[in-house]
Structures are given as C-alpha cells and as structure tokens.
Design a protein around this nucleic acid. Structure first.
Length: 207
DNA sequence: GGATAGATTTTCT
DNA sequence: GAAAATCTATCCG
C-alpha cells in the first residue's frame, strides 16, 4: 500500500516554488518505533538559492550539505538551541534549495502526538506540560510539528523521502485553495511571497 | 486577545 | 561572540 507515495521523480519534476505549493494537501507520514503518525501539510515555505534567508545562500557548509543533495531528501536542523525544523530538499543536486514544512493537520497517531508534545525541551531534561493541547496546536509551527511527529536531526537528517521511515503521500483532496503570503520568523527576504497555506485552515501556525 | 522576555546550543564570523 | 527558518510563560487589557 504505497501507490500514493511521492517518488523521487515527483520531487525532481518541480522547481522549489512549485513544489512548495504541490506539497500542500499531501500527507507527511512517519513510521516510528512508537507507531505511525501522519498529517496533511497545510503550510510550507520555499527557500531559494538566491534568497538571503536561505541557509544555503552564502556558502556550502557541513550543516547545509543535505540541501545540495538530490530532490526528495530530508534536511533537519536545530534552531534556537532547542527546536528542530523539517525540510524537503528540492531542485537538482548542487543547488541548495528546500521547502520548510511549517504546519500539519493531524491525521494518524494523534494520541502519540499528544504524548510527544507533553514533553517540553529543556536544559535539565524535558519539562512536563500541564495544560492539554487542542488538535490544531499539535503540529502548529515547524518546531512543534517536528516534535509531534518524532522527527530528530540525529535520526532523520539527509534521508531519502522515497524510503522509510519518513515519506509523503500524494494529495487526498484536489479541492484545496492555496494562498500565498510572506514568510515567518526571518529578518531578511521577508517581503518575498514564498509562504503557502491552505486558505481558511485552522491548522496553520499564523494568519 | 496581543506584546514581551527568556530559554538554549549549533554554526559561522 | 552573535545570530538563528522558534516556542512558551507571563504580563496586560
């Protein structure tokens, strides 16, 4: 049962901006040892090689090496010391571009996501969350999404999304309305309309 | 509801 | 040594 899984040829078929839009409405799946979690992608951002906000804008480094790999590779990095962000590498080898996945509408393994989100990252071990989260808070924002899905840089950086345990299924619905806007949380290139969301979705990280 | 400050560490200058 | 594709708690209205 993987006829819906996106193949490497799919990732190669689009430029980064097109892929960022094509991935909206697709289902991100993680088959972990703890169980399966998945969610529909409702928010993405494109990072291009000629874009000052892109990690690969300046120089090719160890950290950004996966971005220069083949399309359909994962790029997971640590931000602000405690949160991980999950990206889909795009464009052909040698060009450092990627699509940041920013929010999901949870589909499978929701109770497992809730368990993972109970733990808040901290210096001396994780802290326990006291209040319960709503469904639309589980995968809201790249850091939260990675945590709910159990995605870690040490395990999931630089993997092929055509294999296991992390992959993406094609759109379930074609009746999705996509809206473009500017990106979140950056200081340069903030005027570029490289963010894509499902219109009127309550699951996006920010209006 | 919105604004602000603090956490925390890898990476690059 | 500063910045970073973030999130949460806390304050205030």
């Amino acid at each position: 049962m993987q006829e819906n899984r996106l193949s490497l040829s799919f990732y190669k078929a689009f430029d980064t901006l097109s892929l960022a839009q094509r991935l909206i409405g697709c289902e991100l799946v993680h088959e972990s040892a703890d169980g399966i979690t998945s969610g529909m992608i409702v928010e993405t951002e494109a990072y291009l090689s000629d874009d000052p906000a892109c990690h690969a804008f300046n120089r090719r480094t160890i950290r950004t090496e996966p971005m220069y790999g083949t399309a359909g590779t994962s790029y997971v990095y640590l931000i602000y010391g405690m949160y991980q962000c999950f990206n889909v590498v795009s464009n052909r080898e040698g060009i450092g571009e990627a699509v940041l996945i920013r929010a999901l509408e949870p589909l499978k393994g929701i109770s497992l996501m809730e368990m993972r989100r109970q733990l808040i990252p901290g210096k001396s071990g994780d802290k326990i969350r006291t209040k319960t989260l709503k469904l639309n808070e589980l995968c809201r924002g790249p850091g939260n999404l990675a945590r709910a899905m159990g995605i870690e840089r040490s395990l999931h950086n630089n993997l092929s999304l055509a294999g296991q345990p992390l992959y993406i299924n094609n759109r379930v619905s074609e009746t999705i309305e996509i809206e473009a806007s500017t990106r979140i949380g950056i200081n340069v290139g903030k005027e570029l309309p490289y963010r894509f969301i499902v219109r009127n979705s309550p699951f996006v990280s920010k209006l």
